[in-house]
């Protein structure tokens, strides 16, 4: 399984993601420029990553303009063919704006940029994972009907919790509905999450919980 990382103007986690995938997970990585559109070197066993940052300056709405870049058209087609796509932070926002994932990321309820370690837990249980968050617009929002549907289809992959795995509003860094930190699409090939696993995948960073995130997503 190899990875492609899309670089938009304003991406700033693309090199962190490249470093984590290459050096911590030992994967082949190809960097992709937003103005290109060639994904012919990838098969549906591979994964395209939309990294964090502030694509197109977050103008209009986070991720709204990136959606219409040439590379995103190819990424949308790749996802529709069943290829894996992972969006982290701004990448998650782009996936929502592209309608590859349902819902939207709104400004944090407390109106502050949040930058610290948060704990998240996978829907199937396991241990709480300490993963950094760094965002101003991470409040996941969708209608109640859609949230019920996401839960019924097991599409909520990560929720904010404490270090023991207790899911509660007080451990939610942005006011997201139902403590949602990450979701996947119905088909199970498109994943979006606000926390940054690439910032927690190396012992030199004193935190390797991010490796568990990649494992849960089937990308290790």
């Amino acid at each position: 399984m190899k990875f492609g990382i899309v670089v938009f103007p304003g991406s700033n986690c693309d090199r962190d993601m490249q470093d984590a995938l290459q050096n911590d997970l030992g994967k082949e990585v190809i960097m992709l420029w937003h103005k290109d559109e060639d994904l012919s070197m990838f098969t549906t066993d591979d994964c395209i990553v939309l990294p964090g940052g502030f694509s197109y300056g977050d103008y209009l709405r986070c991720g709204a303009i990136a959606r219409f870049s040439p590379m995103m058209k190819s990424v949308i087609a790749f996802a529709e063919k069943g290829g894996k796509v992972l969006g982290v932070c701004n990448g998650f926002q782009i996936l929502c704006e592209s309608h590859l994932l349902p819902g939207v990321l709104l400004p944090n309820a407390h109106q502050q940029f949040v930058c610290n370690n948060s704990y998240i837990i996978n829907s199937t249980g396991g241990k709480a994972l300490k993963i950094p968050v760094a965002h101003g617009d991470g409040r996941y929002f969708a209608s109640d009907e859609l949230l019920d549907e996401l839960e019924a289809n097991d599409q909520v992959i990560f929720r904010y919790c404490d270090s023991l795995g207790t899911i509660d509003k007080q451990f939610n860094p942005n006011g997201s509905l139902r403590n949602i930190a990450g979701i996947r699409n119905k088909q199970g090939n498109v994943f979006g999450m606000m926390p940054h696993p690439e910032r927690a995948s190396s012992s030199s960073l004193s935190n390797v919980d991010g490796l568990d995130v990649f494992r849960i997503l089937g990308m290790n």
Partner: peptide, 8 residues
């Protein structure tokens, strides 16, 4: 298509 997002 772009200027507004009907979800929000």
């Amino acid at each position: 298509k772009l200027l507004a997002n009907p979800v929000m």
